[in-house]
Nucleic acid binder design. Structure first.
Lengths: 336, 336
DNA sequence: CTGAAAGCGCTAACAA
DNA sequence: TTGTTAGCGCTTTCAG
C-alpha cells in the first residue's frame, strides 16, 4: 500500500500536522524538526495523495484538455510537446477528459469540476461546433488555441496569422507575381479570417488590386485545396501564384496544377501555411509559413498557469511569431 | 460552486446515503425514491467528486500514461486516437503524468499512487532506458506497447513484427530479388529483434542464404537509414533490395540510393515499416508494412481495463495484425 | 513551535 | 427501505 502522511509522522515522531506544515512550506516549523521530517519523506518516498489534497481545497495541480477536432489533429502532437515542458516546470499533470462530448445530457464543466481541474485548454478552430458559454460562465480558467475567445476567465493564443500572410504575399510580390490567389480554410474560423485579412493587406502593400474571383473557398484539407485550385485554373485569366491556408491544401493545389499540365514552381507558385512535417518531404518541398506549435504549447500552459494563480489577471490574447520557410514551391513569375 | 451530494440530498428530501446508493446502483432503494433522486441529479447536473470518491477507496476511473520516448513519437497521436475510443467506452479519463523522469529522487510509482491511477500504459522501445522494476513490483496494472514485459500485473501489446517482416521478404522474393538486405532499428529493441527474426525466416522460406554483410545497423531514424544504405552500397556485391525497420529509415535509404546515381524502384527496391503519414507522400511512395496503431491504442486500453477489473487475469501478450501496403518503392529485380 | 481536532465530499457499515 | 455515522488522507484553525 502507498505510504501516507501518518506513516511519515509516525516514523519522524511528530504529528501529521507538522508533516503537513513542512510539506506546505510553512515557516513556523523548527529547522531541526523540518530536517527530520524531510528525511523520512525522502526515505519513504512519500507523495501526498492528490485526491485528499484537492478535497481539502488545496490545489489539484491538474489541467484538463479538450479538443473540438479530436485527437487526430495534425498539430496536436507538437503542441503537446510544448505543453510538456511548461507542465513540468509548473508542476501540473494533464488530464484528457475522454468522455466528453458537449451537449444536452453531458456537461463538460461538471466533468472538470468532478475532476478538480484547475484550468482547461481548448483546441479547435470553429466557433459554431460547440457552445463554450457554459465553460465561460463557470469561471474555470481556460485558454483557447486558435479560437478568439476572451471573456470571463478565458483567454486565447494563436499565431500572428495576419502578419504572416501579409509577409507571404510580400514575398510572392517580390517574385513579381501580380495575379495572386488565396485558398481559404473554413470561412468562419478565426485563423482564416485573419489570414485573409493579411492577404488583402499584403496585396494593398504591394499595390495589387484585390480580385474577388481569386479567392477560393476551402476547409484546410487536401481535397478542398485540390478542388479550389481546379476552380482557380478554370478562370479566363488564372492566377500565377496562390497562398493556401494550410499545407494540406497546398499539397492538394499542387496536385491540381500538375494535372492541368503545369509544374510548380516553374508555371505556378504555391505557398502553404503551418509547416507540418510533410512540407519538407513532398516534391517540390513547400515554401510555407511555419507555426511554432511548440512555443504555442508552452505558452498556453504558462498563460493558463498565470490565469489560475492570479485571479485578477485579465485573460490574455497571446500571439506567437511565425517564420516564412523558403523551399521550392515558389519561383519568380514568368514574364508574359 | 460545484454541486455536491448534500445539495442533491436536500433537494430530493432524502439523506446523502440514499443519493449515494442510487448513484452506485444499489438495489436496496425504493423505485420511487430512486426516480426522485435521479431527477434532481439530472436537474442539478450533479457529478460526484472523483477525489472524494477515490479517497474512500472507490475506483478513480483514471489511467496514467507514460512515454519513454517523449511525446514527439510519430505514432503517439494515432495510438491516442485508438485509446480515445476505448477510454470513452470504458469510462476512463487519461492522465499524462508530466513530471515524470525516472530515477533516483523521483518515483513514478509514487506519482501514480498519489494520483490514484488504476492502471498505466507505457510506450517506448528500449528496455535499457528505464528501469521498470519498481512499476512491476508495485502491482499497478500496466500495459507496455512494443516492449515485451509480461510479469506481475504487466502485459504488453505489439504488432506481428515477425510475420510482417517474413511476408515482406516473401514479397520481395516474388519480385525475384535474391540479394536482400536489412536495415535494423535499435539492435536490442523488442521490435527489431522480431523483425530481424522475420527477415531471416523469410529468407529461409525463399531459399535465400543469409548474408551477414547484408545486415546494416540503424536506429529507426532517417539519418541512420541513410548511413546504413551507404554502407550497403559500398559492398563489393551490393544488394538489390532492402527491408527497413521503419519508414524514416527507408526514406533515408532512398536518399542514399539516389545520391549513388540509382533510382528506386528501377535499380533498387526499398520496403519500409510503419506506414506513417509521410509514406504515401514521398516519391516514390513507400511500399511498407502498415501497423494498425489505432487498433493498438484501442486494444491496449481494453486489455488494461481487463487487467484492472479482473485481479486474477494473466497479463496478456497481445499481437495486432499488420498489412503490406504496396506502393511504388519496390519493383522486380533486374535480370543481371 | 507543536499537536488535537474539525472537516473537505463521498461511501459503507450499521441502526432504525 | 432509509438514515446516522465513521473514516478515506489531507490541511488548517486553534489551543497548548
Amino acid at each position: 500500500m502507498a505510504t501516507n502522511i501518518r506513516d511519515v509522522a509516525k516514523a519522524a515522531g511528530v504529528s501529521v500536522a507538522t508533516v503537513s506544515k513542512v510539506l506546505n512550506g510553512y515557516t513556523t516549523v523548527n529547522e531541526q524538526t523540518k530536517e527530520k521530517v524531510l528525511k523520512y519523506v525522502k526515505e519513504l518516498q512519500f507523495r501526498p495523495n492528490q485526491a485528499a489534497r484537492s478535497l481539502v481545497g488545496r490545489r489539484s495541480m491538474t489541467i484538463g484538455i479538450f479538443l473540438t477536432t479530436g485527437l487526430a489533429h495534425p498539430f496536436f502532437a507538437r503542441i503537446l510537446v510544448g505543453m510538456e515542458q511548461a507542465l513540468q516546470a509548473k508542476g501540473y499533470d494533464l488530464i484528457y477528459l475522454a468522455q466528453m462530448s458537449w451537449g444536452k445530457e453531458y456537461s463538460f464543466v461538471r466533468h472538470c469540476q468532478s475532476r478538480n481541474v484547475e484550468g482547461v485548454v481548448v483546441f479547435g478552430f470553429q466557433h459554431e461546433v460547440t457552445d463554450f458559454g457554459e465553460l465561460i460562465e463557470s469561471d474555470i480558467p481556460a485558454m483557447f488555441i486558435d479560437l478568439d475567445i476572451r471573456e470571463g476567465r478565458a483567454g486565447f493564443i494563436s499565431s500572428d496569422n495576419r502578419e504572416a500572410t501579409e509577409r507571404a504575399v510580400a514575398y510572392l510580390a517580390k517574385l513579381r507575381h501580380r495575379r495572386l490567389a488565396y485558398i481559404s480554410g473554413n470561412k468562419d474560423s478565426y485563423v482564416d479570417i485573419h489570414r485573409f485579412a493579411g492577404f488583402r493587406a499584403g496585396l494593398e502593400q504591394a499595390g495589387i488590386p484585390y480580385r474577388q474571383e481569386y479567392t477560393a473557398e476551402g476547409d484546410f484539407t487536401q481535397e478542398a485545396g485540390y478542388a479550389a485550385m481546379q476552380r482557380l485554373l478554370a478562370l479566363p485569366e488564372p492566377p500565377t501564384a496562390v497562398v493556401c491556408c494550410s499545407d494540406m491544401s497546398a499539397i492538394g493545389a499542387i496536385e491540381a496544377i500538375r494535372e492541368a499540365g503545369m509544374s510548380v514552381p516553374e508555371d505556378f507558385s504555391v505557398l502553404g501555411f503551418d509547416d507540418i512535417e510533410l512540407a519538407g518531404y513532398v516534391r517540390p518541398a513547400l515554401t510555407t509559413v511555419r507555426q511554432d506549435m511548440i512555443a504555442i504549447g508552452r505558452k498556453v500552459i504558462e498563460q493558463l498557469d498565470a490565469l489560475i494563480t492570479d485571479e485578477t489577471l485579465d485573460p490574455p490574447a497571446a500571439i506567437v511569431q511565425t517564420e516564412l520557410v523558403v523551399r521550392d514551391s515558389c519561383g519568380p513569375a514568368k514574364a508574359d
